[in-house]
Design a protein around this nucleic acid. Structure first.
Lengths: 272, 272
DNA sequence: GCTTGACTCTCCCGCCACTGGAGGCTGTAC
DNA sequence: GTACAGCCTCCAGTGGCGGGAGAGTCAAGC
């Protein structure tokens, strides 16, 4: 019979942990002195404790281990749990590898530029979205505005108010200075709007993953933001799978000064 | 100005999380209605929130992120944190890969044998240990006993009691049926014992890692236990770096029946 | 038999980043 | 005026212990 301290040395499990395992009924001492409360263990309990340690090392939770060691499971069930565990570990490994890539990307940015990056990229989901929209080819990026005018005029006729910020979708495969193929879209929720002229009502595609960058400032030069976003996408092993969007969260219509305008740029992406 | 629900949709951060970030001062709403307690956010807060999300994605804790976003850190400090983080992630990856190997090893055991493994292997440390010991070549495994007799007789002369279970160290590189090179050792703590005859007093080497298997039962056949242990060591990418030990936690001297005897087998190992 | 000091006991708090729920107030649409 | 979605605060719980307080226990040495 060992007292808890000796048993702790033998098994190399902290005393606190042994008491905790007693409390949750995972490894009970062979004998407890009713008068003093002292726990006494025997060497015969080591195999059970070692089973617990081994299963813990495989990454199982203590309540799962509880079932294993108390024999409530067949070999098939155990096999199933192990397969599941294997899948989880593989997923963890993928996550951690992606995280490592992100850390290394940021490290490169800092060592190259000598300063913190100016924008942040996050991966989010894009929900489907009902919009009123006009698509057309405009002369350049500055002349997208009138398209929004068309859409808003149409909504005005139906007395429908937008339910979210306006956005632009860019369909060109590569960067173009002129003749930009763009769609101006305004979310309208479930409101009834009859299509008319160039304005149509449709549902924007949803995406499992979009790489998103949010920037603050006037609409003078989006190039650095686009460059950071593209570089992030490439470094992190994603590829672009759809037209990018610009979402004008705070724009000229807000009445705030241009420095306070906030725009989100999104690229639908998938792991490549 | 967005209410918390809209801001949650924009940022894809749960409302509960936004309230928590407010509470810990990480992302405070732009305005709080003093009468109702309603939180109001602006689009201008999205970049800060996105920074938080991006750093969280790198695996930083919220209090570290707190320092980052409140500009208490220079680019060099940030770089240092990132290098540290990279090292941690690499360590995690190694751990998880080792875990995956262990899970796969156990999965092989189950599918091959159709049942749960009978013994468990755990990695532990071996502390240095002062012992009285006799080393010699004996005829076979059954004839180790008399060596312990020699040691115990010597201890008796000095009226010294063992401070732990007796153990045997096996020095043969490979398995031998006959002429086994073995050392019988008994821990004596700090007691003074003059070496005499074949009995010497020495300190057993400590090891950073030993693969340990604990079995219950009589001393009739250790072969399956040794096989499981060797197979585990090989499957998990370890190699043996010293003589193995058998530790007789409960043995004949305990007076218990042979089925209750408990023996631990240890191989010093290192990752190869 | 007494003292000392190492060991053990229970109980409670803290960790981390939230999540869930109860109970009550507020804003908006019809 | 009345639903009803949305918002508020407060509290408890998560997992697997670790730290520490305050009190009791055991074994050895004198």
């Amino acid at each position: 019979m060992f007292r808890i301290g000796e048993f702790s040395k033998l098994s190399q499990v902290p005393v606190k942990t042994l008491r905790y395992y007693d409390e949750i009924g995972l490894v009970r001492p062979a004998f407890v002195d009713a008068a003093t409360g002292y726990r006494y263990y025997t060497a015969e309990q080591l195999p059970r404790l070692n089973t617990v340690l081994a299963l813990k090392d495989l990454g199982f939770k203590l309540d799962q281990i509880h079932e294993f060691v108390d024999d409530h499971l067949t070999a098939e069930q155990m096999e199933g749990m192990l397969r599941l565990r294997r899948a989880e570990i593989r997923a963890n490994l993928q996550d951690e590898e992606a995280r490592l890539v992100r850390v290394e990307h940021r490290l490169r940015l800092i060592t190259q530029e000598g300063q913190m990056p100016k924008h942040e990229v996050v991966i989010k989901k894009a929900a489907p979205l009902r919009v009123a929209a006009v698509r057309g080819v405009v002369e350049n990026y500055q002349t997208v505005g009138p398209l929004f005018g068309e859409v808003m005029a149409e909504l005005g006729k139906h007395a429908v108010a937008p339910v979210g910020p306006p956005m632009a979708l860019y369909y060109d495969e590569e960067y173009k200075e002129k003749d930009v193929d763009v769609e101006a879209a305004v979310p309208i929720g479930t409101a009834e709007v009859a299509p008319s002229g160039r304005v149509q009502v449709r549902e924007l595609e949803s995406y499992e993953a979009v790489a998103s960058l949010t920037r603050r400032g006037p609409y003078d030069d989006f190039t650095p933001a686009y460059q950071e976003l593209m570089s992030w996408i490439q470094s992190n092993g994603y590829r672009i799978v759809g037209p990018n969007r610009e979402i004008y969260l705070t724009g000229p219509e807000s009445g705030s000064p241009p420095e306070a305008w906030v725009t989100e740029i999104q690229f639908p992406v998938a792991k490549s």
